[in-house]
Design a protein around this nucleic acid. Structure first.
Lengths: 213, 213
DNA sequence: CTAACTTTGTGAACTATTTCACAAGCCACC
DNA sequence: GGTGGCTTGTGAAATAGTTCACAAAGTTAG
């Protein structure tokens, strides 16, 4: 199968979100045009994105909402549960743990880790903060494939190496540092500083730009 | 001037971060190749990115670290202070406020707002949580051009409209919702659910993909 | 059953971004 | 001051991603 662009996958997530809304409202079908308007893209884009995975629509009618929802969940791998460990018992990890959609979509937090003695053993939401020293062995035992990295940047790469050594295959990093991973591991990096600097650039260079994101 | 790609701007931020490191260490010059390795890109990409803004290097030698740092700060608009309001006194906003780099780079938080009566008036870091009712008038008075949106999605668009009406010209949103803004406003949207679903997709479709991000 | 209308799926065209590849410039050493 | 070794800056080529445009297929109304 052809390689799917990252931008396409992001849009699929967005389509899914709005289709779920429509499904809840009991809407039976949705056209590529309707979906495009909801998601801030074009109808051609919607059709192209979906066409990579099959032929889900009916000409003259549109896409069956409930069915397409199921297809997208399948495509995105959301029909199963994913075990997630959170590294760093700080604010960002907490924000994530608080977020309902997280659990709703099949991501289950199986452990929170920190190396701060003042945090270890203390409650954190419904969980208890574990010692980072146990991180690798716990991941191996639980076979958690996903890790969220929410620690200051200094030793981010070292922790990433440890995670990968323990079998983690996907990492969502909030550490403001450049991280490298081997080809069999997926990495998404969110860097608030970069986003803000992007805004600063846009304001400074007052391009008649914009950003529907 | 030609329109600069978003991907280019993001890399400029990354270059800046590593150049500052090198500068602190007292390194005089850096080649595009060295910078590329640090930032996880290619030397051609580094040179191309910089060439959009000028000719900062010396052939045979590389780029003068300290000087290029200053140029990048200038290009990114980081030589001045940006007033920022945070909407939503939750964990994400707190994470941002805690983040040292935030202030260091010239982003100054001038107010935190929430509509939860239990939070209004309470201390929040060094600040006090204000009533959302005061948001628009405060923004107008302070002339804060940047807002960080860290609220649940339900009424995100309504708040955005209020922000824009009050003169905000750039928004960093953490709300998991589709938001649209007029062309003169810049928007960056960070959606943790989409990132995680991207990882789920990658794991499910076990592409020999990766992601140096 | 037919005609008018709607909407998909998809090659082809277009636009954007990255990579290549190399002439030109600069340094250092003799 | 010439030679050899680096490294930049940049058109041109390649690759990636988006938009166009239309035939094919389905729906609805009469």
């Amino acid at each position: 199968m052809k390689r799917i662009a990252d931008s396409t996958v992001r849009r699929l997530s967005t389509y899914l979100r709005y289709l779920e809304d429509l499904d809840t409202k009991g809407q039976q079908t949705a056209s590529s045009d309707e979906l495009a308007h909801l998601c801030g893209t074009t109808s051609a884009q919607v059709r192209k994105d979906l066409s990579f995975f099959g032929s889900f629509g009916k000409r003259g009618l549109g896409y069956p909402v409930h069915e397409l929802t199921a297809h997208l969940r399948e495509i995105l791998g959301l029909e199963r549960e994913w075990k997630v460990v959170i590294v760093g018992a700080g604010k960002i990890g907490a924000a994530l743990a608080n977020y309902r959609g997280f659990r709703q979509r099949g991501f289950r937090i199986v452990g929170v880790y920190d190396n701060d003695p003042n945090k270890i053993g203390k409650p954190w939401g419904e969980a208890i903060v574990h010692d980072m020293a146990d991180l690798a062995s716990d991941i191996r035992r639980e076979e958690a494939p996903i890790a969220v990295l929410a620690i200051p940047s200094d030793d981010a790469q070292a922790v990433v190496n440890e995670l990968i050594g323990a079998g983690v295959r996907a990492i969502l990093s909030f550490a403001p540092a450049q991280i490298t991973v081997p080809p069999h591991v997926s990495l998404k990096s969110v860097n608030m500083a970069i986003e803000l600097e992007g805004l600063s650039f846009a304001l400074t260079n007052a391009l008649p730009s914009q950003g529907v994101a």
